[in-house]
Design a protein around this nucleic acid. Structure first.
Lengths: 225, 225
DNA sequence: GCCTTTCTATGAAGTACTTCACACAACGGC
DNA sequence: GCCGTTGTGTGAAGTACTTCATAGAAAGGC
């Protein structure tokens, strides 16, 4: 399962499209800037645009039934925010908030559909990409139902570190993330994440700092997951 | 919302296509018959075909990390089995087993791609369908992480009964399903499902039989979920 | 009919998480 | 430099599930 992790990051919606098609799409977009903490869109709003992250980082949050904010994921440069809205025109299923100073390229649904109509080939690539995404989400669902916290945490650490440190050997990747954020993403308490991270640290698999986790033994984590 | 069940049920891959396009695709397929218990395909095999269920029922199972079979969902008449393989050509992410005598219409990846090439419009419909499926799975993921068993069970009961009893008023729908199957689908123990179902029964929200659950107060379940 | 298998039902003990309570360390503002 | 804020670390108690054990009732084979 975890060998698919690399796909997670390098398969944003448009990754498989030829460069020319991509820039044609980009040329129809407008650039928007956000300061850290700015709301990009809110859960439940009608969604008719896609944001490609040009610079910075975006936090995706949903409201839990109990009314607390739960961070689903973070999206960085080159990734797409709110892409599903382009395809099905449904309301936003989550809110997007700039977690740093961020620039996005906004493409509207209308522009996108015109662009797609002129490029039937692009639809194939999109179908393939979306299909991979369904697989990945299904897999996450199975993980959540079947795996315990240590395994899930190990997977998550690998996925996060793999993403930021692509195609490099054994060199350790320092993740800039708080334990509270990890807990929120995984749907467990901060205390549990803390205790498990410290257990990993005692084994020498990770090293911890204030607001950071560094994976030092990826193999051990992979074995666990 | 809960899990794969409903999404695959009311949003089969090809639901939004015009009738003519559908029958053009169907005409390229071959019909295959399976007896109850026959394996249709196995997890991990290369996937290059789609099965549309013409008659009968198919059980989708994955192997958990501990080696036990977990039923992900059941697919019935008109639904598609192994549809993702057509789009991305990846190995099967689950096994499919005929849970009754079943007939399927098999379409190969090659045939599908030729068919799709001749119908650029169909790609739009497929993109929309897949997009909805991603949303539903994401939602199921959030449910699993955030909701407790009573809520999830209530949702699941509604989703199952809604699927079999579409667009009808207050009339009770009798689900033909064992508690063990429900437990396997939801990733909890059979005993937990049993105890919770009996709690619902004591409230008068469902009535139980051997191999069946009947929702008698859908509103109460909805309030809980 | 009986016997085997399948399914439901339930209590007792164990486990993995949770919440709560608190301590302390690092950083930022001024 | 001090002080409020944010983040980490940890134990105690509680909760929601698990597994295990056991029982009985319904259905199917022959």
């Amino acid at each position: 399962m975890d060998q698919h992790q690399d796909l997670i990051r390098d398969v944003p919606l448009l990754a498989r499209l030829p460069e020319a098609d991509l820039s044609a799409l980009a040329s129809r977009g407008r650039v928007r800037s956000y300061r850290s903490g700015d709301l990009i869109f809110r859960e439940g709003e009608p969604g008719d645009s896609l944001h490609m992250v040009v610079e910075g980082q975006v936090r995706i949050v949903v409201l839990s039934p109990l009314g607390e904010e739960v961070t689903v994921t973070y999206l960085g440069q080159g990734e797409c925010v709110g892409d599903l809205a382009l395809l099905d025109g449904r309301p936003r299923s989550a809110s997007a908030i700039a977690s740093q100073a961020t620039k996005t390229l906004v493409v509207t649904r209308g522009d996108f559909r015109r662009w797609l109509r002129e490029r039937p080939q692009a639809a194939f690539a999109l179908l393939e990409t979306l299909s991979l995404r369904v697989r990945r989400t299904d897999e996450a669902l199975a993980d959540l139902a079947l795996l315990d916290l240590p395994s899930r945490l190990a997977k998550r650490l690998l996925s996060l570190s793999g993403a930021r440190q692509p195609a490099k050997g054994g060199s350790p990747a320092k993740l800039r993330i708080t334990q509270a954020e990890m807990a929120s993403m995984m749907g467990v308490s901060r205390e549990s994440v803390n205790k498990q991270l410290n257990a990993f640290a005692r084994e020498g698999w990770v090293s911890l700092g204030r607001g950071s986790v560094t994976v030092t033994d990826a193999k051990a984590l992979r074995d666990l997951a």
